[in-house]
């Protein structure tokens, strides 16, 4: 069973890896945005050093981490949910439901494969360019990297769980595009992509940091920047894993309802 899902994930990786020109074009665009936002943050942090607990180089690092994880965590959409919505709309989903594999795990495996490709293909180069052009606050000890990677994986799972729920709404709504757009908007804002969540003032900041989307960028970035170590690191993982369990569970409930619906309608 594990081997099956590993194969599905590898398939997801390969499928996205075929678009080489598109990948190069995306890397270029990510890098351009990295530069623009880096300068904006520099202007902000030069006036308010230690804003949100970050120093200047941490803030700039946060920008480049955002560009690194933008595609991997599908912060602006572009994950497997587009295809899932399309399959639901066309009715091909019935085929998936009769496969001897779990629907949610199948698509999760796909999405993890995709995320792995996007992290390497789309994320690595902008981070390297950022490190060359700016003074980044990269970890001093090697083990921070695997700790960061684990947090990214958990972030991808949380992100997938949300996007899976959104995609399943297409069973009931004629056109899932509107909901999907709303969802990635929320993700964009509450992940910290537009501004780190620790800079959000007061209650807005507290709410934003408690929402699942903070798992996608803010938490992994804090892990890499060394803001979360020891018990706090364990707390960060628990936060992400907690949301993953809750949202995946909700996904299963909705999936069961959707399956009944398909069976009743006869596909």
């Amino acid at each position: 069973m594990v081997r099956l899902y590993a194969r599905v994930a590898a398939g997801g990786f390969r499928r996205y890896a075929t678009y080489r020109v598109a990948t190069a074009a995306g890397v270029f665009t990510n890098t351009v945005f990295g530069f623009i936002m880096a300068y904006a943050y520099i202007a902000l942090w030069e006036q308010r050093p230690q804003l949100g607990g970050y120093d200047l180089s941490q803030a700039v690092t946060f920008v480049w981490l955002g560009q690194t994880l933008l595609m991997a965590c599908a912060l602006m959409g572009g994950g497997v949910e587009d295809e899932l919505i399309e399959r639901i709309r066309t009715g091909d989903i019935a085929v998936d439901l009769y496969r001897p594999a779990d629907l949610q795990l199948w698509w999760l495996a796909c999405d993890l494969g995709r995320a792995a490709f996007h992290l390497l293909g789309r994320g690595l180069v902008p981070l390297l360019v950022g490190a060359l052009a700016f003074d980044l606050a990269l970890p001093s000890s090697w083990w921070t990297w695997p700790a960061f990677l684990l947090s990214v994986v958990l972030g991808v799972v949380v992100g997938f769980a949300v996007r899976f729920l959104v995609a399943l709404s297409a069973f009931w709504l004629l056109d899932g595009a509107g909901v999907a757009q709303m969802c990635w908007l929320a993700g964009l804002f509450f992940s910290g992509m537009l501004l780190p969540l620790n800079v959000f003032p007061g209650v807005l900041g507290e709410v934003a940091r408690a929402l699942p989307w903070s798992s996608l960028l803010q938490v992994p970035a804090d892990v890499l920047l060394g803001e979360r170590t020891g018990w706090e690191l364990a707390g960060a993982y628990a936060f992400q894993a907690g949301w993953a369990v809750v949202l995946l569970g909700a996904g299963r409930l909705v999936q069961a309802a959707a399956t009944r619906r398909v069976v009743v309608q006869g596909g």
């Binding site: 678009y19 020109v21 074009a25 270029f28 665009t29 351009v32 945005f33 623009i36 904006a40 202007a43």
Partner: peptide
């Protein structure tokens, strides 16, 4: 380059973001 639609985004959306700042 038919697959290079994203390059355009760097200049359109990217340009727009750039010009929002001084």
């Amino acid at each position: 380059a038919q697959d290079a639609a994203e390059v355009q985004n760097a200049f359109t959306y990217g340009g727009n973001t750039l010009l929002q700042y001084p």
